[in-house]
Nucleic acid binder design. Structure first.
Lengths: 148, 148
DNA sequence: ATACATGCAAACATTTTGCTTTGGC
DNA sequence: GCCAAAGCAAAATGTTTGCATGTAT
């Protein structure tokens, strides 16, 4: 398995971690599985709970925190801005886009998987302002169909 | 002066506040002036400092906090996601768009005032997912021309 | 004169770190 | 066995609230 492999799975990420010299522990397996199974961004607490279900023992909050910080640095997860009081994280498949649609009323979060609506704009803006290595964070907020 | 007036100034906002039954104090004048003069989103601390320069006396942090919460509820300011550890706020001229370009290296923030790149996409997404009252939060992150 | 706004201080929530023990390699 | 990872607990940071006093109306 090499770095340009087109798979992105708990296994491939585990390999990536190993290549970084990191150890694969029960906690880390649980956290990875939690991230991969979730269909929406998760708070550290949610990751902690979900991880404990998978591996039977609940990792300490600090452990989750350090693991996620690590993965963020390695671009394996990214933070999502849900306009709430704590941070939410999501696994980062490099081949995917992660724009979100959030219901202001019930909080439900939908991942938008249609092609990224602003790829062109991004390039234009980079050029205009002399910025490079552009990425973006895009969240839509509205009221979903089932909310009054 | 009526609500559909096309001006958006410290004076017009002051009027809006008065109409809400709020009192115009030295602190509030300072905070308003700070918000209007800034070319980038400000933290509550920054607002506090800037306000104190303008009116000579430094409002308490809690006072700034309550004022900004109030203005947020009235849609006179909005929060901006700069991926930092505290919240940033910006005055909300209803006729303008507020998308941002942030340098990952030096933190410099540029307001993008070209026409909003995703008006159409927004409508499409609303339709597709059955959401209404859509708004969005869009920030670009990159490295600016003056950073290595 | 009457509320609303303020300052101060404390409570709260969340994130981050230090240090000892555990366990993957 | 060695060193990274985990657990525990405390510190640091940022946000929010309660209450007595000041002040715009």
């Amino acid at each position: 398995m090499n770095r340009s492999d087109s798979t992105f799975t708990p296994e491939s990420v585990t390999e990536a971690l190993r290549r970084e010299g990191l150890r694969i522990t029960r906690n880390r397996r649980g956290i990875l599985q939690a991230l991969f199974e979730s269909v929406r961004p998760m708070s550290l607490q949610e990751i902690q709970s979900a991880a404990s279900v998978h591996e039977g023992s609940r990792p300490d909050y600090a452990t989750v925190f350090r693991m996620i910080m690590l993965m963020e640095k390695l671009h394996l997860v990214h933070k999502v801005n849900l306009q709430r009081s704590c941070s939410y994280y999501e696994i980062s498949d490099p081949r995917k886009h992660y724009d979100h649609l959030v219901c202001r009323s019930c909080g439900n979060v939908v991942l938008i998987d249609t092609p990224c609506p602003i790829g062109d704009a991004e390039k234009k803006i980079a050029l205009q302002h002399g910025f490079r290595d552009l990425s973006h964070s895009l969240e839509f907020f509205g009221v979903c169909a089932t909310c009054p």
